[in-house]
Write a protein that binds this DNA or RNA. Sequence first.
DNA 1: ACGCTGTCTACTGTCGACAGTCAACAACAC
DNA 2: GTGTTGTTGACTGTCGACAGTAGACAGCGT
Lengths: 221, 221
Amino acid sequence: MTPPLHLSLAGQAVDVLRDLVLTGEIPPGERVNEVEAAQRLGISRGPLREAIRHLASEGLLTLVPHRGAYVPSADADEVKALFELRAALECAAAELAATRRTDADVLRLRSVCAESRRSYSAGEKFPHRLDLAFHQTLLDAARSPRIAEQVRLVQQRVILLRSALHDDPPHQHASLDDHDALVAAVEAADPTRAAEVMRKHLARVCAQMLTSLSVAGPVAE
Amino acid sequence: MTPPLHLSLAGQAVDVLRDLVLTGEIPPGERVNEVEAAQRLGISRGPLREAIRHLASEGLLTLVPHRGAYVPSADADEVKALFELRAALECAAAELAATRRTDADVLRLRSVCAESRRSYSAGEKFPHRLDLAFHQTLLDAARSPRIAEQVRLVQQRVILLRSALHDDPPHQHASLDDHDALVAAVEAADPTRAAEVMRKHLARVCAQMLTSLSVAGPVAE
DNA sequence: ACGCTGTCTACTGTCGACAGTCAACAACAC
DNA sequence: GTGTTGTTGACTGTCGACAGTAGACAGCGT
């Protein structure tokens, strides 16, 4: 009846559900009802369950036995632990990028930075999309597929937390400066400096997220 | 972590299957037949499928659409990429451990080191079990749950590769020395040194694994 | 003998239904 | 009114069966 066009139903369900969670359409704290979600996606409970378990393994859902799947909401400790992991991965990636980068990589990084500044100074909201693209480009330059894979998973969880984040222009300008400094270190092929800049950058982002969280108040689990 | 800890059939299947894979009872390259495995475990295909997907998310199985699950076998590139990830995580963990360790942590580390030397000098085979315990203890001292979680997953994949590893006494003595040096750096609360020692330790282990792999010949995927 | 093509088989992907479990609610005893 | 206990309801965990796909193999044509 429904021949898998390019992906299995479970795979499609993963993509759709992931999007629903990341865009906040399913807000943190909300449960995912299996039968209801399955009906909404027009599939059976089997594939949907697989999708839920998959997203749980990515950290986008938490599973409670006999009670289903929740979208996790974060407290301060969770944010700190998450950023420790992110720092471990991305600092290493920055080191590797500084070691392995080609000239083409540097050009791509500069391009993303320029685009970010252009977009932000145009009076728009901070372009999270380009921020993500920068980190992704840096990751590509590191050429370490396993690290890249893990970073993507962590970034997803960060995106999930960003819903409770309000704009903070001074911080965001500082982030753009961090990115430029990072590119400079990578271009200079200075792994130690690249790692250090990344560490400080992430520390700043983490701190901003923590204050933002304390203002908004931690969401109830 | 695993949704139903030891109650659901799927959870039990995960534990059993993981053990079968890690002990090499299901050798690398071998397929896992769903109906056969389900019958062997005395459960239905549903829970077994969930277990397979779970182990796939841990990297202990690779999924091929319409063809099932294989136990992955590694080539040199895979080993390198995996150890880059491991280094990123464990170096960060070593730094954190050197910063946060208590006196009790140092005692525990010393105890594991002593036990390792005793066990190894007793003419036994190299005690991989105690090697793992050392890294685990160091991880506990780092007090970073998310990093610890990821390290455990990576270590599982390393265990999977270790089946093709033959003993190498000089290397193994060096490893014990590395562990001692690591404890010293942690006790001295010197994060930079701890990370550096860890990096060299893992580089040594990785190199030994690569030569071991080239001798045994890379197993076909 | 070689290559192509159609069938065949074993397996995965998917589905609907049953059974067990947990939480909320109501009725009751104190 | 408060605490306890039985009941109910909704949901997850599990199962067996059907459908569709990918590789294997034999038969045919050249």
